Amino acid sequence: MRPSCLIFGIVFASFPLMAQEHAAPADGPEALRGSVREWMETMQKIQKEEDAWEKDREVLKGYKEGLEKEIEDLKEQIDRAKTRKEGGDKQSLDEVAERDRYAAAQDELARQVRTLEEGLSSRLKLVPGPLLRQAKVAQGVEVLKQGLQLPPDKLSEDVSKRLFNAVELLAEIEKFQQLVHVRAELHKDSQGREFKMQVVYFGLAMAYGVNEDSSFALVGRPGQDGWKFEERAAIAPQIQALVASATSEKDATFTQLPLIQP
């Protein structure tokens, strides 16, 4: 029960008792009623304040619950952000490690390609002239030389292209090495006279050449300074027979020739 209802009950219950008391002064009842009225107005104000406070308390309670919910949401967002950050940091570290591995592998590949280019270049002198003059091989040699001119800090440039070129160049040389080839070439004798000759190459190992009338013959081998040819007029007929056998569609014949030591 509210305090105002209780107060009204006490006041009305007191009126019979007040009637039994001695007569009050003329202004006594009026003063009493004024006091009661003032007291009731005061209690009504108090009640209003209590009602207002109750409403404010409910509003504040709603604010408090809303703030608590917002705080919980923010905590969850912070936890998710921390999780994402930790995952992002790990991913970033993994990406950095992967990038470093890739860079290290690329540097190692660049060094290996340079080693391959240097080794291949040092052995080009063992490749006979006719093979070096072939368009595909000549272009490969040019690319090889361009790669060798790169400074150390540029070794990674066009590394894939240079590797492919070196492999292709080696493949062409290996293909020549596995077969017997007959090439038309010009050679000079010791007197400076030039002859058109047919030269038979046994891969990269040896070569035998003879002119059309078998008056001039050569034997060639690769050396430290490249291919060297020596005059061997005495075996011109045998070399002529070798050329005929190599260029004829008839059955191959056996031709005996000296093996020239390097």
Rank of each mutant, 00 (worst) to 15 (best):
R2P: 04
P3Y: 07
P3F: 06
S4V: 00
S4R: 00
V11C: 12
F12R: 10
A13S: 14
A13F: 13
L17R: 15
A19T: 02
E21G: 00
A23S: 04
P25T: 12
E30P: 03
E30Q: 06
A31N: 11
R37P: 00
R37V: 03
R37N: 13
E38W: 05
M43E: 15
Q44H: 15
I46M: 12
I46E: 09
E49S: 14
E49D: 15
E50M: 14
W53D: 04
R57P: 00
R57S: 03
K61V: 02
G62F: 03
G62M: 13
G62T: 09
E65M: 11
G66P: 00
E68V: 06
K75T: 01
T83V: 06
R84Y: 05
K85I: 15
K85P: 03
E86Q: 07
G88L: 14
D89T: 02
V96D: 01
V96L: 03
V96C: 01
A97K: 06
R99N: 08
R99L: 06
D100F: 03
A103W: 09
Q106L: 01
V113E: 05
E117F: 00
G119H: 11
S121P: 07
L124G: 08
K125D: 08
P130I: 02
P130S: 05
V141Q: 12
V141H: 06
K145T: 05
L148D: 04
L148K: 08
P151N: 10
P152M: 08
L155K: 09
S156T: 15
S156W: 05
E157R: 13
K161F: 10
R162W: 01
V167E: 14
E168I: 05
E168H: 07
L170C: 11
A171W: 03
A171C: 10
A171E: 15
I173N: 02
I173C: 09
F176N: 07
Q178E: 13
V182D: 01
V182L: 05
R183D: 13
A184F: 05
A184C: 09
E185I: 11
D189C: 10
R193V: 15
V200Y: 05
G203Q: 02
M206R: 13
A207G: 07
V210M: 07
V210C: 08
V210Y: 06
G223H: 03
W227S: 07
E230I: 00
E231K: 00
A233C: 03
A233R: 10
A236V: 12
A236Q: 01
P237W: 11
Q238W: 04
Q238K: 11
L242D: 09
S245I: 00
S248H: 07
S248N: 01
K250W: 01
T253D: 03
F254Y: 13
Q261G: 11
Q261K: 08
